[in-house]
Design a protein around this nucleic acid. Sequence first.
DNA 1: AGGATTTTTCAAAACGTTTTAAATTTGTAT
DNA 2: ATACAAATTTAAAACGTTTTGAAAAATCCT
Lengths: 343, 343
Amino acid sequence: MATLKDISAELGLSVATVSRALNGFPEVNKKTRDKVQQAADRLGYRPNRVAQRLVTGRSGMVGLIIKIKPDMSADQTFFEVITALTAGLAARDTELVLAVDQGTDPVAPYRRMIEKNILDGFILNEPEVNDARVAFLLEQKVPFILHGTDRDDPPYPFYRIDNQKVASDSIDLLARLGHKRIALINARLRHHFAHERLEGFLKAMDRHNLSSDLVKTENWLADDGYMSALELLAHASPPTAFVCASTPIAYGVMRAIRDKGLRVPEDVSVVAHDDAMPVPRAVTLDHALTVTRSPLRDACEPLAHMLMDHLNGKSVADLQVTLTADMIVRGSTGPAPKGGVLT
Amino acid sequence: MATLKDISAELGLSVATVSRALNGFPEVNKKTRDKVQQAADRLGYRPNRVAQRLVTGRSGMVGLIIKIKPDMSADQTFFEVITALTAGLAARDTELVLAVDQGTDPVAPYRRMIEKNILDGFILNEPEVNDARVAFLLEQKVPFILHGTDRDDPPYPFYRIDNQKVASDSIDLLARLGHKRIALINARLRHHFAHERLEGFLKAMDRHNLSSDLVKTENWLADDGYMSALELLAHASPPTAFVCASTPIAYGVMRAIRDKGLRVPEDVSVVAHDDAMPVPRAVTLDHALTVTRSPLRDACEPLAHMLMDHLNGKSVADLQVTLTADMIVRGSTGPAPKGGVLT
DNA sequence: AGGATTTTTCAAAACGTTTTAAATTTGTAT
DNA sequence: ATACAAATTTAAAACGTTTTGAAAAATCCT
């Protein structure tokens, strides 16, 4: 493998000049630069990343530690995330190193990687409230970027959506359609975003002078939505609309509604937040579901770039991005039923 | 971050001695070694991997390029594979760098990674016959290890199972049970292992003086097995036993058998090869299925170690491992029916 | 032409480690 | 003590880059 020295020997130039020529420094003569570039091409020169990294103090690798579910099942969106992430990082000449978190201590794999002393930073996702990993990385002063947040005024770089607005937009839409009894099936409160959604929900309901008594906290999947919806529909004054934390929950809710002999959207409206948008579901049922939408994969390239900017010393304040989710109105929402569902 | 120089300054020793002490060289005095170790602990010394790698010429990273299916769906066993692979590599102080192959040219992502000049080698899986990636890596003289093989006498390190034996063991079992009409539902012949299975099947059938006219080549999933089985069962002299390339195929086959009003194993026996053994399936249906078994994940740690051995110069001949799959007889196989299925 | 700039190139240091070859210390046998 | 071998330690080179500070070359101005 050709090195800078080879090129410099070939051309009778110093290594320093060759290095500068190839790295586009302005103070090198056009003629020289061309000669160097040509020689580099001819000799098939590829910079030795390891040497570069030794002198720059960077490893050129960032870590992603994936949490594996007990059943070892693959997350629907995992490949999408990986694809976008590696693409974004590659553009910044950085590799993604994967590690697996199987244990009970969420911090352990981070500690292991840090001790190996080989990563420039981490990408974290799915933060819990006051996330232990976040606390650890802050304490260790290891750079990272978070998809989402784990507290209200985070002192670290993040990329997230405005979850209060996700909730309040949904409420606003439903209220405009005349709904009075609106239920929230929220995610588990260990997720920080669930707190934000709840807050947005409560504020918006208040603003519309509606009662926020139909709130449930549930797991992520269809069965969870199904069970919750059944309970809520059994209420003396049942909801005419559901705001759901996830699309699977929404499908469960719709099944429950159907099972109760009711129709969507004539009798009951359903809104969900959709952060996944996996291909198969999109073509089958999604067309029917009104959602606030912010695909996970869209977050990945910005995440990669922001982490790199962070490593390059960009100030944290400039690396705190909050996006607004799109509101996509489809067939699962309609005007509130005239006399209430059960009349 | 403390360096060797810091320790050497602290103790008034040379950097070389400190390095040797920490790396367990025999020629360093016990007393010195202890002092050094102690100082290293006290200062929280961690070797700078990048510097190590510069001098050893290794990057300490190997690549795994994952092929993503058009629907972005996650492979059932992906996480198992990743988990075992990272564990095996970590034991050899090596990281797994992930890249994604989305394009049409299977070689492109490998070329990209090689040009980046950052990986010590690759782990390849799911080889096709005369795999283009294999040819490319051989030509580029980039070290790799293959899970499986792509040709008959491979000049590279591999870890595989004896696929001829997988087929012939299945036939032997069924022949012992008195089956005469045995069908093979093989995988697509672009997979090299499918050729090996076919060869094993033909030889074994020959050995038992049975006719090999019931052979189909199919995709991997339940529906494929279902369709093939229906066709085969419509034969004038239908099979009393099926040998299936995968467990999903086997489930499709069993469904077809049931739909024809036949029972497993009284009327028809089913054997499959199981390389996945995902948790959920194991508890539901697997107990019933007789299989030749060689879980994918069991291959991962050996793969990691063999690649590292390869990088360390171990001869290729010592890195060509062929295992025998286990034969696990369960409820889906039984004696051949007395007078044939249709009498 | 000669001094003052400006542009371009260079030698050397630095990054943190491993390893080679040589030097020093220690031990042993005369 | 002396010579010789063995055990231990050392200085220095090497890995391939970037970067600093200085030198050389080219250009400009009178």
